[in-house]
Design a protein around this nucleic acid. Structure first.
Length: 376
RNA sequence: UCCUCAGUAGCUCAAUGGCAGAGCAUUCGGCUGUUAACCGAAGGGUUGUAGGUUCGAGCCCUACCUGGGGAG
């Protein structure tokens, strides 16, 4: 199936690692892959303005069907002229389907074949989202990429439950495809199957047969050890369509980005960078730093001397630490600017490394300088 | 000078005569398709001082010290 608004081309394959370099063309611009997508759940990357998002090099960002449906509602956003205009982001947007919210808000929902009934976390009112409803909402929002409404299973998860969740995800994927009509919006299917190799492979094959424009890999990074996630990626890789973008959903620590790209992933999104930023932690080229710690009270060097972001070129650790200490709202803003820039720049480096066939060297250099066990 | 009230964790305050606590602050940790500017943990005390009563005193009694209020 061809769509005039979307195409994905692989431009280079790293001879050293097999990782791919590509470009995803969308109605709001081209996206170089592999790419990291900052998350703006409620039509806003927390603490950031769209101008700042552009300045740090964001190519595409994420928003969320579930949250925008509850507030302010997709009709208001349609009235505003669509999500791009509403939030002043003229570049690509991907919307998550709400499937993950159904999973993470467990306890106040009931999943049936038809769809999910749940209580709004905002006012307790009864709501219903089905594959069709999710498609309607995402089409009203007008994102460039819509995600299928899936069933995410937990970790650990027994085989029967995982299989049922996967099979329902497949049936729902068909319904999403059936109901999705907007040509200027790409629909991605989502591979599930928990942590069972055969289910993951079965899911990858089933989704491939449905011929989506791109594929999410869901249900990972839900509490399992990293090697377990990496193993799943290795297992399904041969069964993922070669000419389509692969999106590892919800993964975005620096080490996971590299490991994911090496395993053939093209797209990532993650709240980690912005969440830990607001809570006083930052990424640096040497590892994670809890910048609110007392030991930085007199440290007048930048958060990361190797960083080119606005925060690092203008402010010191002591200053940012003071802002956290004083509960100034700018603390979370500066840390967010930095953490997002850190990941975006790292992805730029990864793309360069792929182009120069030296991604394994890049990974080696990364682990030599980036201490996963200590904070500095 | 007298009367009166009050002195408990860095701060503001709890605690029938029966294991001395909370909130905030401090320190440290966690955070992966955001219900998160959030959540968790730890450190911190000769209960103003000195005596007394009591099996047992932060609490009751005496004196003193410090501070607030009042009278003169």
């Amino acid at each position: 199936m061809t769509n005039p608004h979307f195409s994905y081309e692989v431009t280079h394959i790293c001879k050293q690692s097999g990782a791919r370099l590509g470009v995803l063309h969308t109605p709001h611009g081209d996206i170089p892959t592999p790419i990291y997508m900052p998350v703006g759940t409620s039509a806003c990357v927390k603490a950031m303005t769209s101008r700042e998002m552009e300045e740090i090099g964001t190519k595409i960002l994420l928003s969320n069907t579930y949250h925008l449906h509850l507030r302010p509602g997709e009709e208001l956003i349609r009235e505003a002229g669509g999500l791009h205009r509403f939030m002043d982001w003229p570049h690509p947007i991907l919307t998550d389907s709400g499937g993950f919210q159904v999973f993470s808000l467990a306890g106040i929902r009931k999943i049936k074949e038809e769809g999910v009934t749940f209580q709004s976390h905002l006012d307790g009112s009864r709501k219903f989202i089905s594959p069709e409803v999710s498609m309607d909402i995402q089409q009203a929002l007008g994102s460039d990429i819509a995600m299928a409404f899936d069933v995410c299973s937990p970790y650990p998860c027994d085989y029967k439950t995982a299989k049922e969740a996967m099979e329902r995800t497949h049936r729902w994927a068909e319904r999403c495809k059936e109901h999705h009509t907007r040509e200027d919006q790409a629909l991605f299917g989502i591979v599930q199957g928990a942590f069972y190799e055969d289910l993951r492979i079965e899911s990858a094959k089933a989704l491939s047969d449905m011929d989506f424009i791109g594929y999410g890999i869901g249900g990972l990074s839900v509490g399992e050890p990293k090697p377990v996630m990496y193993e799943m990626l290795d297992k399904i890789r041969p069964y993922m369509p070669e000419g389509k973008p692969r999106y590892l959903m919800g993964v975005g620590s620096p080490d996971c980005l590299i490991e994911g790209v090496i395993r053939g992933i093209d797209m990532f999104d993650c709240v980690l960078a912005t969440r830990i930023a607001r809570n006083g932690s930052i990424f640096t080229h040497r590892g994670r730093v809890v910048i609110k710690n007392g030991k930085y009270a007199h440290d007048f060097s930048p958060m990361d001397e190797a960083c080119d972001c606005y925060a690092c070129t203008h402010y010191s650790r002591a200053y940012v630490r003071h802002l956290f200490n004083a509960k100034e709202i700018t603390a979370g803003r500066l840390a967010s600017i930095h953490n997002l820039r850190f990941l975006l720049r790292m992805m730029e480096e990864i793309r360069e490394a792929i182009a120069e066939d030296r991604l394994l060297d890049y990974r080696k250099e990364f682990y030599e300088r980036y201490d996963l066990t200590k904070n500095f």
